[in-house]
Computed example of a mutant assay.
Amino acid sequence: MAYKLVALDVDGTLLNDEHEITEVTRNTVMEAARQGIEIVLCTGRGPLNSIPFMESMGLGGYVISHNGAATVEVETKRIVHQFGMEQAELDPFMAYCRERGVHFDINTAFEMYVDNVEELAGPVRHMYENYLMMPSNLPAWEELPDPVVKFTAFGEPGDMDAVLKDWSTWTMTLNMLRSGEYFIDLMHAEASKGNALKQLAAKRGYRQDEVLAIGNYYNDITMLTFAGMGIAMDNSPVEVKAAANAVTASNNEDGVHEALVKYCLS
């Protein structure tokens, strides 16, 4: 099958554990693009800290950011589509986090906000530095310039397990995802990587069976199951591997390179 659109998750997939794209993976992604395959990053990150990876490979096109809540054009930074949330939907989650000392951030398509940026320290500050994004202080809701597309809670895995257990008992109107060991994301009910990839494929004129997707975590399952070929990284949880059509090497063993060579460049 000739795949025409390749969707790549970023952390744990395109990047190794040093948060880098290896030279061999970079060259293979660029070769796929040279052969006419459209590359799209499909990530929980925002556009500001995902677009630079596209630019570093000389690629244009689109990034699907915030787990599918905002799709952005690389060259113009134009928002193609976004799913916004209302304050009333997030108020209970913000109250829960503030009462229990759980760190959270609020994201519009291009901005990130926290309660008190001056007090960021330790693992929380290190996390933002690793992900190349420093937040601003959260203003009053009515002063936010753009719709809120993602709410993220951050903490140690055991703490996030407890938060997820609590929130799973609530009546849920939002899409709640464990997007990493340390993260729980809340988005609009219709926002997912799979839905955003489906919309982009239709916009670009690609059939479902012409789409290949590679990912490694629970927030990737919807895009892996939408794609004609869904490939899980070897560092994926067993549930993610079960949702995929195939498994490639880990992110520390150039799994993206291996998959593209096998399914797109051979």
Score class of each variant (00 low, 15 high):
30 M>A: 15
246 A>G: 01
240 V>A: 01
173 T>S: 15
150 K>A: 09
156 E>M: 14
148 V>H: 08
13 T>A: 02
251 N>M: 02
132 L>C: 12
71 T>A: 10
70 A>C: 10
204 R>H: 08
154 F>G: 07
116 N>H: 12
164 L>S: 07
107 N>E: 12
211 V>T: 05
160 M>I: 14
120 L>E: 09
64 I>C: 00
258 E>C: 11
4 K>L: 04
195 N>C: 01
20 E>G: 08
215 G>V: 03
180 G>R: 01
54 M>C: 12
188 H>Y: 05
210 E>K: 04
121 A>R: 14
234 D>F: 00
121 A>M: 10
183 F>N: 06
3 Y>K: 03
139 P>M: 09
182 Y>A: 10
203 K>V: 08
112 M>K: 14
192 S>R: 03
20 E>V: 15
30 M>C: 14
197 L>R: 07
190 E>I: 08
182 Y>P: 04
223 M>G: 00
5 L>T: 05
244 A>K: 03
237 P>F: 00
245 N>W: 02
76 T>P: 09
129 E>Y: 09
244 A>F: 03
261 V>F: 06
92 P>V: 14
113 Y>W: 10
105 D>R: 11
62 Y>A: 10
136 S>C: 11
180 G>S: 06
236 S>C: 02
181 E>N: 12
79 I>T: 14
11 D>Q: 08
123 P>Q: 09
229 M>V: 02
74 V>N: 12
29 V>F: 06
241 K>Y: 00
108 T>S: 12
138 L>N: 08
75 E>G: 10
60 G>E: 07
